[in-house]
């Protein structure tokens, strides 16, 4: 049940640095910005771990026409939103991969293939993956992405899986890791660290 629930789309485009997935109908909270996901690669031998950094919906002829219509009936409205022709697209940044039950915190050796299923990490997987914080540099080094926001969103999500003292410990360690990596730019560091504060 869990696995089915966790499937959020299929790969449409990909590279070593990340992959793009498509879904016809988004769940209320999936995919979402900063969510951890994974896609099968190397014929099922590995899973690329991704972090969702963008979700986009392209326009189509139909949408443009309807947007200019005088009035829309509720039926027309929901029909358009739910029976889409152009799918919702989401992009994920590769931040590591899993092979033989081991997590690796570097770019994967191969990207997933198209139509590979993309699933959300379960809380347990997310917890296991974020046991180490070595994925942070991969986030920070991604070009042209809102990396600071992405970083805080991801870390906060990982923190949610933990409780009480454990959560505080995690956030503090994450904060220190960010400080180590961002100490050249105090304004940036300040925003990131403040974003981690509870």
């Amino acid at each position: 049940m869990e696995e089915v629930h966790a499937m959020i789309g299929r790969v449409t485009r990909c590279s070593i640095r990340g992959f793009v997935g498509a879904v016809r109908l988004p769940e209320p909270d999936l995919p979402s910005f900063g969510a951890f996901c994974k896609a099968e690669a190397q014929q099922g031998h590995s899973q690329v771990i991704g972090l969702i950094y963008d979700i986009s919906i392209e326009d189509d002829e139909f949408a443009r026409q309807m947007a200019t219509a005088e009035s829309l009936s509720p039926e027309q409205f929901s029909d358009h939103q739910y029976n889409r022709q152009v799918p919702v697209e989401f992009s994920a940044l590769a931040i590591g991969y899993q092979r033989d039950d081991q997590f690796h915190y570097n770019l994967p050796p191969q990207p997933p293939l198209t139509l590979a299923p993309i699933r959300a990490l379960t809380p347990a997987e997310r917890m296991a993956f974020t046991q180490r914080l070595d994925f942070i540099p991969l986030i920070l080094s991604a070009p042209n992405l809102p990396v600071d926001d992405l970083l805080t969103a991801a870390l906060r999500q990982a923190a949610q899986d933990r409780s009480g003292g454990e959560r505080r410990r995690f956030l503090l360690q994450a904060g220190r890791e960010c400080a180590r990596l961002l100490d050249r730019d105090l304004s940036r560091l300040h925003v990131v660290v403040r974003g981690l504060a509870e």
């Binding site: 220190r176 960010c178 180590r180 660290v193 403040r194």
Partner: peptide
């Protein structure tokens, strides 16, 4: 007033 920030900074920066 930023406790968390202070704590992070004082152990790293």
């Amino acid at each position: 007033s930023e406790d968390f920030v202070l704590e992070v900074y004082s152990s790293e920066v």
